[in-house]
Design a protein around this nucleic acid. Structure first.
Length: 536
RNA sequence: GCCCCGUUAGUCUAGCGGUCAGGACACGGCCCUCUCAAGGCUGGGACAGGAGUUCAAUUCUCCUACGGGGCACCA
């Protein structure tokens, strides 16, 4: 029996995603279970969006959560290179093979024509797909046009009749009508492969036996199968995992959920708790009594793992339960271990010195250190009565201040997010520019806009310098907080609830005070008390 | 619009023809308690709907509804 080899193939665009850890966990555990290997491959064929910084962040976050791989760009291995941008020659050679055996053809269609075709198909309510315009071009003609430097892509020649059956380890046989399947682009006009080509070629060359990936890939599997056939290769076993979901059941997204692993690391989720929680998404274990087992280690999980027992309903990523499991792990530590872990978590954080520099001036005694540094080490914030500052200008002292409605304030935060999100460099000057830009789109005063951002990001109206603070808090966490503020402002009822809570608190205090002052004779007089202590 | 996947309480799940439909998060109550947590006990809450197969369907089949995903020179 051939050894099990599995892989994850994240693309280095943006923050390391919780879904990558999820799929990584099941792949790694599966490999461990069967004594096989787990490979990390970087899918950076999208030149426009891939960055080296993101790639590094993926290594970091995956390591943080406790995943280790046997082969990868950073650790090497016998099937390298493990970065697809470094494998162009391999893909080119394989394309040549497909071109000569006729399973692929050059397509010279322009983007404009393709758009027009798609628009036309949509207006006729058909499945949008390539119309085959270049499918039957004469080969010699195609060769000469290519050699004259005309721009082209390479497309897979899909069979136009019959069905393709995708054997999925969890779903059985999934049948597709071949006429539904597009002539997929394999090689882009920049000469780089698309995911579909690179993925098949690499999986084969790297000896991957089981492809465990997210369900969103299920529909493109027929294309992959066609490629395996075109190359004359044996396809791997396919396992399509359910997609992690937002509370509204849509595919998990950063708009509706913190998806960055960095966010969880910084808000103090323990990596072992994160893995445990992720394992519970679609998988369950039982104790001797037959009750569901909620807490188990990665090793136990890997030993137990049976992929056929994965449940397919899309699991909602429930932060409440994550926090509960995290608490379970925290309580399982000895006090000494917890002290050690906590100190390590905030003291050896790579931003420790940066944060210290920011709060230094505001700390008269070390005891107040965490009060000021706290917001740098948290995930979501609780605004309480400071929520009023989130309404741009509304808490301003100047009578003439421009005051924005909740909706307008929300609009402001949305444009701010849009300005912050694409920043290449997450630095104070870049952040400042984005903030000033966003404020400029509103009639509010600069200072009032800044105050709203300060409270949104730091949770209170007093903080170290805003831009530097935001730089230190980090992009992932800043964006999560801003999105939560948008949600808050988007639903005024949430604000009402907050206001009601504050009012209740105040009224209770007032009532207690009034009651106490109304019965001065029932207690020893203040006079006596003062004298007594004063004389001691 | 077309194609594919899914459907047990608000959420994560067990179940693989006969179960009082089990566990967990969250929620309510009680206990413990200097507070808050934690912990213990306890309560409410689910098989999407309809046909069929069967002595018997949550479980098998089909239809409907609902949810999700895909339909790019993004992965």
């Amino acid at each position: 029996m051939t050894p099990v080899r599995v892989r994850i193939a994240p693309s280095p665009t943006g923050d390391p995603h919780v879904g990558t850890a999820y799929i990584g966990l099941f792949n790694a555990a599966f490999a461990r279970h069967h004594g096989g290997q787990f490979i990390l491959r970087i899918e950076d064929t999208d030149q426009k969006r891939s960055t080296r910084a993101s790639e590094e962040a993926i290594y970091r976050s995956l390591h943080w959560v406790g995943l280790r791989w046997d082969e990868g760009p950073d650790v090497g291995g016998p099937c390298g290179p493990y970065r697809q941008s470094e494998r162009s020659a391999i893909y080119q050679a394989h394309c040549q093979q497909l071109l000569s055996n006729g399973t692929a053809y050059r397509c010279f269609c322009t983007a404009g024509r393709l758009d027009a075709v798609r628009a036309e198909q949509r207006s006729r309510k058909e499945t949008a797909r390539y119309d085959g315009f270049c499918r039957d071009l004469d080969r010699a003609d195609s060769d000469s046009r290519a050699s004259q430097g005309e721009s082209f892509v390479l497309r897979l020649r899909m069979r136009q009749d019959g069905d393709t059956v995708v054997p999925d380890a969890l779903r059985g046989q999934v049948v597709y009508d071949n006429r539904q399947i597009d002539d997929q682009v394999l090689l882009k006009s920049d000469g780089l492969p698309t995911y579909h080509l690179a993925n098949v070629v690499d999986d084969h060359l790297m000896g991957v036996t089981h492809v465990i990936r997210a369900e969103e890939w299920l529909n493109s599997t027929p294309k992959h199968l066609a490629l395996y056939e075109a190359f004359g290769w044996q396809p791997p076993v396919f396992v399509h995992m359910p997609l992690l979901r937002n509370a509204d059941k849509s595919k998990i997204s950063k708009r509706k959920n913190p998806t960055s692993l960095q966010y969880y690391e910084r808000s103090g989720i323990l990596p072992e708790a994160m893995l445990n929680f992720l394992a519970l998404m679609g998988y369950s274990r039982k104790d001797e009594a037959g009750a569901d087992l909620e807490k188990f280690s990665y090793d136990e999980f890997a030993a137990d793992l049976d992929m056929t027992r994965i449940s397919l309903g899309g699991p909602v990523f429930d932060l409440e339960k994550l926090r509960w499991i995290n608490g379970l792990y925290i309580r399982a530590l000895t006090p000494a271990q917890l002290a050690e872990r906590a100190a390590q978590w905030y003291g050896q954080d790579e931003r420790a010195a940066e944060i210290a520099a920011l709060v230094q001036e505001r700390v008269p005694e070390l005891g107040e250190y965490m009060h000021h540094a706290g917001p740098f080490y948290r995930g979501s914030l609780d605004y309480g009565c400071n929520a009023r500052f989130l309404l741009v200008g509304c808490a301003a002292k100047k009578k003439t201040a421009v005051r924005l409605s909740p909706a307008a304030s929300r609009g402001f935060f949305e444009t701010l997010i849009a300005g912050l999100e694409p920043l290449i460099e997450w630095t104070a000057p870049a952040i400042e520019e984005a903030i000033r830009g966003a404020i400029a789109t509103t009639p509010a005063a600069v200072g009032d806009g800044m105050m709203a951002v300060r409270v949104a990001v730091c949770g209170r109206p007093a903080s170290p310098p805003l831009f530097e603070s935001m730089a230190a808090i980090g992009r992932a966490t800043v964006l999560v907080r801003l999105r939560e503020v948008c949600n808050l402002l988007g639903d005024p009822r949430l604000l009402q609830v907050a206001i009601a809570a504050v009012r209740q608190e105040l009224e209770a205090t007032e009532a207690a005070l009034t009651a106490a002052l109304a019965v001065p004779t029932a207690t020893p007089t203040p006079q006596t008390a003062v004298t007594a202590t004063g004389g001691a």
